[in-house]
Amino acid sequence: MIDTTRPLQPPTKQPLWGRRLLNMHAWSTYVFLYAPIVLLVVFSFTKDTFGVRWTGFTLDWYIKLFNDQRMMTATFNTLWVATVSTFFSTILGTLLALGMERYRFRGRDGLDALLYMPIVIPEIVMALALLAFFSFSFGIIQALTGVTLRMNIWTVIVSHVAFCISFVTVVVRASLKGFDVRLEEAAADLGADTRTIFWRITLPLILPGVIGGALLAFTLSLDDFVISFFTVGPGTNLLPIEVYGRVKRAITPSINAISTIMLVVSMLLVFLSQFMQRRADER
């Protein structure tokens, strides 16, 4: 006989030992995730010259860092790369998003696939392809015009734009999904021209999405190591590459300090971009 009087069980109803096991597993995983990061931050303040154990509090490593000319130049270069590549990839990505969401056209599916390629392809393959491309095309330019071009900060910027475009497009497209086209139609009925509609109606409405995309591009560019490493050429110093070079030599508290700063900066950026996206979703 079927017992119909029994109320619907909530999904959390489980054997007690099962829940305990799940809880234990979850909390040990959180420890696994956070222990390395927390220790890194703690050890950036330690007096220990090897930076791997706690022997007292000091800010020396941070002070040393700010007096480190190489590190400062590298930081400045990295910020410059991130700023310029964010500027271009945001414009190109937003335009692509508008075209993809607003229009139906032949080759749209193909373009969709092309846009996802830089996201799914292994980073190292894209990096070495760009290196091959720059070397190949610089060789041709030299043969044709006699002008010798070298890889520098601009080859990095061009490459960063190439992989950031797709990410910006994804974010902006998401913010265009709930867009009410009637607002633009109303503006057109009231006599606004295309340019006015874009600047006064469309852009303000999708702005949170655009800013979210820009922040994502900025974070990606700031954090990128692999593509920068392949496309930078000698003579230009970037922060992740400088850190990588030093890490390979030895663990020092200065690296703990710069890592802590990088960690805090990228977290702030992501919180900001999440906040922007949430605002975009609310609209």
């Binding site: 092309l114 491309f133 475009i165």
Partner: peptide, 30 residues
């Protein structure tokens, strides 16, 4: 309509073709 669609897509598509697709093809040549 076609002109504005072209204006929206062309810059980004061109960038991806030159700095993403072409490099992959050059790897094939290499």
């Amino acid at each position: 309509r076609n002109r504005s669609l072209f204006g929206l897509l062309a810059p980004g598509v061109l960038w991806l073709l030159v700095f993403f697709v072409l490099p992959l093809l050059i790897v094939v040549v290499y």
